[in-house]
């Protein structure tokens, strides 16, 4: 079996690991790089708990062959906070109690970050669409949607304050 060395950037840090064919990006992140924030829920791309950003776009990392991401820029939930300073989305989830068991939360956060990066002022419908690939079995979604809208407002206010 051919082993490939994969070089990539994860949360801004250069990383390298050896991948066999069939190794998923999720498996490499969790087991080789020790980043266990992305969760393995269904392992078939249906639950969204493994969502990470691949060159800024949200992907279900359980379906991404690790050998195909050589040279890519990956963002995971571990990279969102700046030290103890949570990102706006994280803080809004915390303040709005948009989590219960927490298993879906890393994927939800990454889908939300991707949405707000491309659309700073989303409607509730656009939020619903952005997280439609992320299954939550606890909250009933309403607090998550509210938190993402709240985070969007926090980000806009921050941008206005710095101009």
């Amino acid at each position: 079996m051919t082993v490939t060395i994969v070089n990539l950037k994860v949360n801004g840090v250069d990383q390298a690991f050896m991948a066999r064919p069939g190794t998923t990006l999720l498996l490499a992140l969790r087991e080789q790089l020790g980043l266990t924030g992305a969760k393995r829920g269904c392992a078939q791309g249906a639950c969204g708990s493994c969502t990470v950003l691949l060159d800024g776009a949200p992907v279900v990392s359980c379906l991404v062959p690790a050998t195909t991401v050589d040279g890519a820029d990956i963002a995971t939930v571990e990279g969102l906070a700046d030290g103890q300073q949570l990102s706006d989305v994280q803080q809004a989830f915390l303040d709005g109690f948009a989590t219960q068991c927490g298993f879906c939360t890393p994927g939800m956060l990454m889908s939300a970050e991707a949405l707000l990066a491309r659309n700073p002022d989303p409607t509730a419908d656009e939020v619903n669409e952005a997280i439609s690939g992320n299954v939550c079995r606890c909250t009933g979604y309403a607090p998550i949607v509210s938190a993402i809208l709240d985070a969007a407002e926090r980000r806009r206010n921050r941008v206005e304050a710095t101009h």
């Binding site: 829920g41 269904c42 249906a46 619903n128 299954v135 079995r137 009933g140 979604y141």
Partner: peptide, 17 residues
């Protein structure tokens, strides 16, 4: 068998509570 075949309401299908 899996989530693909198990239908659940998504965020757009929730009632106002």
């Amino acid at each position: 068998i899996d989530f693909c075949e198990y239908l659940m309401p998504g965020p757009a299908e929730i009632p106002v509570q």
